[in-house]
Simulated assay, not measured.
Amino acid sequence: MPRLRHLINMPGHRNLSAAASALGVAPGTLSYQLASIERTIGFAIINRAQPLAPTEAGHAFLSEARHLLRLLGGACPVNGVTRS
């Protein structure tokens, strides 16, 4: 679940380094998590242009990720960091 929380909180940050700093993880870790999930599902979730923004498919994926985390009991804001 931390990976999903990281993903849903990435959009809006100016770059991966800024997102990683806000999420309290190393930039390389965040980049690896994102690339790993994108490889697994077969499409890009985040457009890495500045600022970070969801791709068209990423919007749907992130919406479902938020929904899943809510069902599992995690409060998931659209922006901002949620820690459990």
Rank of each mutant, 00 (worst) to 15 (best):
S17M: 07
R39S: 15
L16R: 00
S31V: 06
S36Y: 02
S21H: 06
F43E: 12
R39H: 12
G24I: 05
A26H: 13
S17K: 10
I41K: 06
L16H: 01
G12P: 03
N9M: 10
Y32M: 09
A22H: 04
L34K: 10
S17H: 07
L16I: 14
G28A: 11
T40E: 14
L16F: 06
G42N: 04
Q33V: 13
S17R: 12
L34F: 11
S31W: 07
Q33S: 02
A18I: 00
R14A: 05
N9L: 04
R14G: 00
S21I: 08
T29Q: 13
S36R: 14
I37M: 14
A18R: 06
M10R: 06
F43K: 03
V25H: 00
Q33Y: 15
T29V: 08
A20R: 02
R39T: 13
S17Y: 01
T29N: 10
H13E: 08
N9A: 15
P27G: 01
I37K: 07
S17C: 03
A22S: 13
S36V: 02
A26W: 00
L16D: 00
F43Y: 15
N9E: 11
A22F: 02
A22D: 05
L34P: 04
L34C: 05
L34M: 08
G28P: 01
A35I: 01
L34Q: 07
T29F: 13
S21L: 13
R39M: 11
G12R: 01
I37L: 15
M10Y: 04
A19K: 05
H13N: 06
R14P: 06
Q33R: 11
P11K: 08
T29H: 14
T29K: 11
I37V: 11
V25W: 03
G12T: 03
E38Q: 13
G28K: 08
G42R: 12
L16C: 00
A19Y: 01
R14V: 13
Q33E: 15
F43M: 09
R39A: 14
H13W: 04
I37Y: 10
A18Q: 12
L30F: 11
A26N: 14
N9G: 15
A26S: 10
S31Y: 12
G28I: 05
S31K: 13
L16N: 04
H13P: 01
Y32V: 07
